[in-house]
Nucleic acid binder design. Structure first.
Lengths: 267, 267
DNA sequence: AAGTGGTCTAGACCACTGA
DNA sequence: CAGTGGTCTAGACCACTTG
């Protein structure tokens, strides 16, 4: 009973359904419930096309805005994506890429590989540097770097992509007294990246602290990361410390659909 | 120019707006853009009421479904919440609670405190155990525990709340050969919880590995955690290891609005 | 009772996709 | 071209909150 992903089974789905809606619960939610159940059970698999709006209208005997509301529910739950002119499809699930934050080890960036390349192996990778600027630190960044608010920082803003797929945005902030005039203030920071340069400059990195949160993306973030509705972002604020002081604050926004963050804790 | 949070400024907002929409971009998106800008700028602060649907209809000269679409956009971005019969409000922001996963230290659970109490200090806390059951391990859990698929496990499912506010769901899975017949299989596992019992039973915990992801909640999760639209959940799969074997897989789902996960990495 | 949001209809026109 | 989803209207009735 094998059926390859992406097969259209609209017609089968159609005849298998009861077409009656019970009073008490809104119609659009009942329709969403049925479709959701079909997705969860696997009856509708990854990439399969959902019944079209027209088909749902006929099946359930409701107005178009009602079936659209049902489909919107599924999209905002991250279960389906609409493609204009094509149909609504079960959203392809889950990370084809995983990230071990554990790989923030010296062996990684010491060897000239960026840490986000850790699991990439032989894939093609890109890090499109949007820009490197010198700015006044925001209050939050200044506090985390333990420098006076408004002090100059070098900011490296980047959009990381792999095989053309945007994965994450990052904005690394370093105190200007450390980074200005060095390779860190250049678009290409050289082999091993910022962390390798910091060590060379006499700032050996002792520990990283990461704060992890999740939220829905802003419209700008959704555009840059090509996020469909219903996909949140994970935000990471990483602070790199030497034994003396914090030397970098990196604000990272990742496509939560493509990442698994991995941490190891030793009590 | 101080204005306390929650103040209604509908009328001010109304007169300050242009009421013309430009062609090219959908009307509901332009309306959402204006409201979003007001929220981001702070003109509309935490808990403030947005203009009502009626006011927006008059201001922009569009149909009701159009302004509703605009308000839906903001709700799904997590910027606003609607309250039936009251209005639409700027969503109160961000964690009044923070969690240091770093606190998975022996000193915490050794001292009889659960790790999710680490930062709670003198707040009132509750952990409503939904149930403790014996089940066959799912494929995923079995693989993580390195036991044959279908082997019995003890499952402790809980809903954690603080001051009546639900924070997280968890489902801890332990191999039956370790946990069955012990306090771990009881609803109240005793002081220090599962981890303290494991140590007493001769399973000293050496390391924890956590995999962190984010996604939109299922309807059930949204109901249990009382999540409004536009708030994702963070999922954590924590595996506790002795030097010999993995002894617990804990599947955790947290309200991303109330948590900051914190990790420390030493290269 | 007045004002708010929640659901729903029966249309319309448009933009995009694919054969 | 037919079929798909995207936007929008002008109504309707309902449910909830507040004074």
């Amino acid at each position: 009973m094998y059926r390859p992903a992406g097969t259209s089974i609209d017609r089968e789905w159609l005849v298998a359904r009861p077409r009656t809606l019970k009073p008490g619960r809104p119609a659009y939610q009942q329709i969403a419930d049925e479709l959701r159940a079909s997705i969860r059970s696997g009856e509708l698999g990854d990439g399969d096309q959902l019944p079209s709006e027209t088909q749902l209208i006929e099946t359930f005997g409701v107005a178009r805005m009602t079936v659209r509301a049902a489909l919107q529910v599924l999209q905002h739950e991250g279960l389906a994506v609409a493609e204009h002119g094509r149909g609504v499809f079960v959203r392809q699930r889950r990370p084809f890429r995983r990230r071990s934050v554990q790989r923030l080890s010296r062996s990684q960036w010491g060897s000239g590989r960026a840490m986000w390349e850790a699991d990439t192996a032989d894939d093609r990778t890109f890090a499109a540097t949007i820009d490197v600027t010198r700015e006044r630190a925001t209050d939050d960044v200044a506090e985390r770097l333990r420098i006076p608010s408004g002090t100059d920082v070098v900011v490296r803003r980047r959009l990381h992509s792999v095989d053309g797929q945007p994965l994450q945005l990052s904005a690394a902030h370093l105190p200007a007294d450390i980074a200005a005039g060095t390779a860190i203030a250049e678009p290409d920071a050289g082999p091993g990246g910022t962390y390798a340069r910091l060590e060379e400059l006499g700032h050996p990195l002792e520990r990283f602290v990461e704060e992890v949160q999740a939220r829905m993306p802003s419209p700008d973030e959704a555009r840059l990361l090509v996020l469909p509705a219903g996909v949140p972002v994970i935000t990471v604020v990483r602070v790199a410390h030497t034994s003396e002081r914090p030397v970098e604050v990196n604000e990272i926004v990742v496509n939560s659909d493509l990442y698994v963050l991995e941490y190891e804790i030793r009590p």
